[in-house]
């Protein structure tokens, strides 16, 4: 298993290296003249030349690429053009908020999606199955930003049962920063009121964000279950007198969810993208709002860093998912290419 994990990590490296190069290409080649963008619309040619020299943009392109790679590897992603602070610091502050939201959404999607898929498969082509089909196709068709707005309209504005925006009530204060995850930090500080408040704030954003994931997970679990239910071992186990619940919940499901687990890894990318919209609407102080701010203020350093960090997190999650999959289904670890 340790060898498998090592190989899986090594396999992720070329993609990450490519990502670093891609971000370089994005900033230096495609946009025409970043110096002119940086200097602003009213800059004189002399100012532009000055900026070009300061950022090393007058160097040969391969030299710039090397410098870029070196900076990224040493964690030096430059300073935000907007705030002047190192972007890596600003991102480190915001990443936990996004991760807390995405992990919670992923948890909801899995906790609801897998049972839905199982129930649908056990009622193949019945009314429950059709309902799950509707949810799984419809969930992928709803624009998350629109759903967020509609949920806000109903639950926060009309009925006033859930908070409209943000991560905490200001008057309750925040727990001392340890992990950056408010749910964990508030428990560590023994502040149940803050924990409840953080949880309430998490409900609407997480529900909005989890829907597409829930749809895919239900779908994959359903198809995996259907495939497994036709296997001989199921027939044998039934004949041997295994209880239905034990058979379905343990033996069939375990074999059926391997595809679902891979899918969860791929979903994570979609969740991060979805988080941009969801965060923007619920004023969630995470990477998504940061990215949107970076766009509005033309802060290309910040945007670049977000792209990189998200890419790295995405790669890490996919490695993690593969490892989980290998734990669920040990055969996977054996036939990696």
């Amino acid at each position: 298993m340790a060898r498998y994990i090592l190989r899986r990590v090594l396999l992720a490296l070329p993609a990450l290296f490519g990502l670093v190069l891609l971000t370089f290409v994005l900033t230096r080649v495609i946009p025409g003249d970043p110096a002119a963008t940086l200097a602003g619309d009213s800059a004189t040619p002399a100012q532009i030349a000055d900026i070009r020299a300061r950022y090393g943009l007058d160097r040969p392109i391969w030299e710039q690429a090397l410098v870029h790679v070196k900076q990224v590897l040493t964690g030096d992603l430059g300073s935000s053009i907007f705030s002047g602070r190192p972007v890596i610091e600003e991102i480190g502050f915001r990443l936990p908020a996004t991760l807390e939201l995405t992990f919670f959404a992923l948890f909801l999607a899995t906790a609801i999606g897998i049972p839905l898929g199982v129930v649908a498969a056990l009622n193949h082509n019945g009314p429950v199955d059709q309902l799950v089909r509707l949810i799984s196709v419809g969930g992928l068709a709803i624009a998350s930003f629109w759903l967020a707005l509609m949920l806000q309209l109903v639950f926060a504005m009309e009925w006033d049962v859930l908070p409209l925006r943000g991560r905490v009530e200001v008057e309750l204060g925040t727990p001392p920063l340890r992990t950056g995850f408010l749910l964990i930090d508030s428990l560590l500080a023994g502040r149940l009121d803050q924990f409840r408040d953080a949880l309430w704030h998490l409900v609407l954003p997480a529900v909005t964000l989890c829907l597409p994931g829930l749809a895919s997970i239900a779908r994959f679990t359903r198809s995996g279950m259907l495939e497994m239910l036709q296997k001989d071992f199921v027939l044998y186990a039934r004949a041997a007198g295994y209880g239905r619940f034990r058979l379905y919940a343990i033996y069939v499901l375990r074999n059926a969810v391997t595809v679902t687990v891979t899918q969860i890894g791929l979903l994570f990318g979609a969740l991060i993208s979805g988080a941009v919209a969801v965060e923007a609407i619920y004023d969630w102080p995470g990477l998504g709002t940061y990215a949107v701010q970076a766009i509005l203020s033309a802060d290309y350093k910040a945007l670049l860093a977000v792209t990189l960090v998200v890419g790295v997190v995405y790669a890490a999650v996919n490695v993690l998912v593969d490892v989980v999959q290998a734990l669920v289904d040990p055969r996977v670890a054996e036939d990696i290419r």
Binding site: L16, S273, V276, A277, A291, T307, V310
Partner: peptide, 12 residues
């Protein structure tokens, strides 16, 4: 490996 929306935003 790059989430689509982030790349689209960066390009945009």
């Amino acid at each position: 490996a790059v989430p689509q929306l982030i790349l689209a935003l960066a390009l945009g």
